[in-house]
Amino acid sequence: MIQFDNVSKRYSSGHEALNRLSFQVRRDEMVFLTGHSGAGKSTLLKLIMLMERPSAGQVLVNGQNLKKLGRRQIPYHRRRVGVVFQNHQLLFDRTVFDNVALPLLIAGYHPRDVGRRVRAALDKVGLLKREKQSPINLSGGEQQRVGIARAVVNKPLVLLADEPTGNLDPELSAEIMLLFKQFNQVGVTVLIATHDLALVARMPNRMMALRDGQLVPGHEQSGVALG
């Protein structure tokens, strides 16, 4: 589902975030991506989201070579990829419902479908009763769940998460991870960047460790073969 072939990313500042990185995440897989801050986790996710372009190599998502997507096609690519951020990226000037509905309105769903899908997504993250509130009145864990609902409301093929539990206590973090697992079980490919090794250790999923823009060899946890 996600494939990196010899991908390098060098920023104009000269910093080399990724260095000839190759890996593959299979369809229906849920994979953790760990490493210190600055190891290249965020860059890797940004390349999948087409928020950045690689300096060399190529990235494939669902068989589509991202190099071949022009500027105008980026929005359509992003609609197939859900993304969850540490800082939630929610809009506080509108309700929880409106935040979650945003990707659907953007994708041009008919109004009769929007309400149903939004409520289904909110129900899944356990926030159906909060739909009329502003996200600012929610706790950190709840805000993160709104972010997750927004990421999955459009039924993406791939779900990316960048430090989704960064600000949460272990109990809430476990809840969030359980949510990701549930989405993975219904067929969404999930890639989670985190530095919370203790949390990852409790999960049976494959883990990739990044260091200085490269995968650390022999760090595969679940024994799923690469490539």
Partner: peptide, 25 residues
């Protein structure tokens, strides 16, 4: 300015919620 809020949408859809059929757009 702002992108549309879904309020009006949600009001409109809530009535037809029951028996909603999965529809491709």
């Amino acid at each position: 300015p702002g992108w549309p809020l879904a309020k009006t949408v949600s009001q409109r859809t809530s009535r037809r919620e029951s028996g909603a059929v999965q529809r491709k757009s």
